[in-house]
């Protein structure tokens, strides 16, 4: 039987409905401030862990396009970054260096704490792109080719340095920077510095500790004094047991020090190996 709505007050008792609303409000009201506090704590911890990634700005969104933006927004940031990386490989194979550079920037912006993007991105720019520019004979002027090559080396170096900023304890990025100064820029002193920093990072391979000193041998004016200081510092850092170990090449270190002490005529009382 249907009757007009105005003749009755409710279909459910008022107390019944009020009770429901009150309970829900109470539960959410108690939880909401606790939620905010807890989330702030989690966010702070994650900042300390240096987790980040560029905020989803319009600029980033334009670069990604709609589909990938949804992917990032739904928490698939790393997968999206990997997808974009596929196009880096493609651009490298088609030798579209500007496109490749932009995509490397995008990947590193999406996932700055993935060392592999910085590592390989810098390699692509400072080696592949720069060598291609050097051998690009569509540009007849060799000086212009050199300038272009140097441009890509600088881009690569920027990538490595920003990578180090985001991943300061990653030995590979320090090593890559040293390699760049060593092989591409021939700046052996700076290379020595970066090799030294690389060897100080956790999990760094042992051989890196010698590379810093070796760089001084390659300095154009043969900076024997700096080399001696570096070899001596290395010798003093090693324990007696480590000096005996084959991987530390104690014999070689001793040979280098003896040779340099001779060459520099270090007074016997100040020598590491007076005999």
């Amino acid at each position: 039987m249907e009757i007009p709505a105005s003749t009755v007050s409710t279909c459910l008792p008022l107390a019944h409905r009020l009770r429901r609303a009150a309970l829900v409000a109470l539960l959410l009201g108690l939880w909401a401030p606790a939620k905010i506090v807890w989330e702030q704590r989690i966010a702070h911890e994650q900042d300390v862990l240096r987790y980040g990634g560029a905020p989803m700005t319009l600029h980033l969104r334009d670069q990604l396009g709609q589909g990938l933006t949804i992917g990032v927004l739904s928490g698939m940031r790393s997968v999206v970054a990997d997808f974009v990386w596929l196009s880096v490989t493609t651009s490298w194979m088609t030798e579209d260096w500007w496109q490749m550079g932009a995509e490397i920037n995008l990947c590193t912006a999406l996932q700055p704490r993935a060392p592999v993007f910085w590592d390989m991105g810098g390699w692509h720019l400072a080696w592949n792109a720069s060598i291609a520019a050097m051998e690009d004979h569509t540009q007849p002027n060799p000086l212009r080719r050199l300038k272009a090559s140097r441009f890509w080396i600088d881009r690569g170096r920027d990538i490595y340095l920003r990578g180090i900023e985001n991943n300061p304890t990653n030995w590979q990025l320090w090593r890559d920077t040293a390699l760049l100064y060593d092989q591409r820029l021939k700046d052996f002193r700076t290379a020595a510095y970066y090799y030294q920093k690389a060897s100080e990072q956790p999990n760094a391979p042992i051989y890196l500790e010698r590379f810093s000193a070796i760089m001084y041998n390659k300095v154009h004016a043969n900076d024997d004094l700096s080399a001696y200081v570096a070899w001596k510092a290395l010798w003093e850092r090693l324990t007696p047991e480590e000096r005996q170990m084959k991987q530390h090449e104690g014999d070689r270190i001793e040979k280098e020090i003896r040779g340099l002490e001779q060459k520099l005529s270090i007074p016997k009382e100040k020598r590491v190996f007076p005999n």
Binding site: M1, E2, I3, P4, A5, V8
Partner: peptide, 16 residues
């Protein structure tokens, strides 16, 4: 037991 029939602005009295 009454059920609201919102669109018709009426109430159905299923049991009186």
């Amino acid at each position: 037991k009454r059920y609201p029939l919102t669109w018709k602005r009426k109430v159905l009295v299923a049991l009186d």
